[in-house]
Design a protein around this nucleic acid. Sequence first.
DNA 1: AATATTGATTGAACGATGTTCAAGTTTGTT
DNA 2: AACAAACTTGAACATCGTTCAATCAATATT
Lengths: 180, 180
Amino acid sequence: MIADRGLAGLKTRDLAREIGCANGAVYNLVADVDELILRVGSRTLHRLDQALSAVESGEPSPQATLVRIALAYCDFAAENLELWRALFEHRMDPDKPLPDWSIDDQLQLFRHVYQPLAALFPQRSREELGITARSLFSAVHGMVALGLEQKLVAVPLPALRKEIAGLVRAMIDGLIARAA
Amino acid sequence: MIADRGLAGLKTRDLAREIGCANGAVYNLVADVDELILRVGSRTLHRLDQALSAVESGEPSPQATLVRIALAYCDFAAENLELWRALFEHRMDPDKPLPDWSIDDQLQLFRHVYQPLAALFPQRSREELGITARSLFSAVHGMVALGLEQKLVAVPLPALRKEIAGLVRAMIDGLIARAA
DNA sequence: AATATTGATTGAACGATGTTCAAGTTTGTT
DNA sequence: AACAAACTTGAACATCGTTCAATCAATATT
């Protein structure tokens, strides 16, 4: 339901009707809609993880791998738009903290960026690499997020991919030049 | 109310009580909560615009200006966290389109990135520059958005500023190197 | 086999929330 | 003073997530 109606289109009554039970029965499977959304998010993150892993195989240069990962992220977001958006649009009540399994899911993502980065900058510490990996990931995420937004001018997907590839290469080149 | 309770904490009844009128009277000032949020967003965007303009004065190099703009964006987001989040968290019904004045507000933002970029790459066309400006802006936005997120590990603001400055410089260096 | 216990299922009900609207009140004009 | 226009009110409506007493089914126990 999230996939084709968006997070806002998820209603417990519709959901109950679709799976064939009374609306109250939803709460035997799940404590909250919050938990429901988190569990859907967990599946989405795992599929995203697989999509990113699929492009890491046998690549010559770490640079090329990073570009391919960024493009794979973009493609996944475009092909799973609503599910991907649900990962970031959803906000918990400030007092209810995220369960640990959900936090773990999210941290796994940076791993994909971390490894090629570690190959590029072997002299850097684990912390430095972790921070840079997060920054790089965030930058690409921002480009995808605003690029796929309908709010402003919609960017055609091929143009967005080209921009992402260009800017990722520029970022890596710049990082290498600064390290030298 | 958005500023200190967040978008989700904005309730028409609370609002009516706070401004001293009946809950129905809110709809004489505004057609929707959507419009209300958009109007608050407009104010936020104008203040953001001013904050970015304030760092553009008499700067030597376009590079330094771009870094300062990125940091100013980060600082504004940190100091106006909930209002800034409201700009991006809010989603309209898919059938109700954004009013023109709201779209204009948002497009103005890219102007700040466009001008220093045009100084750096005078040979590029207006379209190319516009696209690159949007990409650069989006990348910084992504770093700020995920950096200020409490969901994952909270990043201390000084560390985030350092990361943004570093990656912006790297991106610009990379763009220049590729242009050569 | 008969009964008791446990657990799932139901759907009505509650509270919160955005929105509407008939009725009442104020304000402005002639 | 009399009328019209506009504003204000607060009750009512629809739609949510969520709860829960009652019912039902299944399983365990005697």
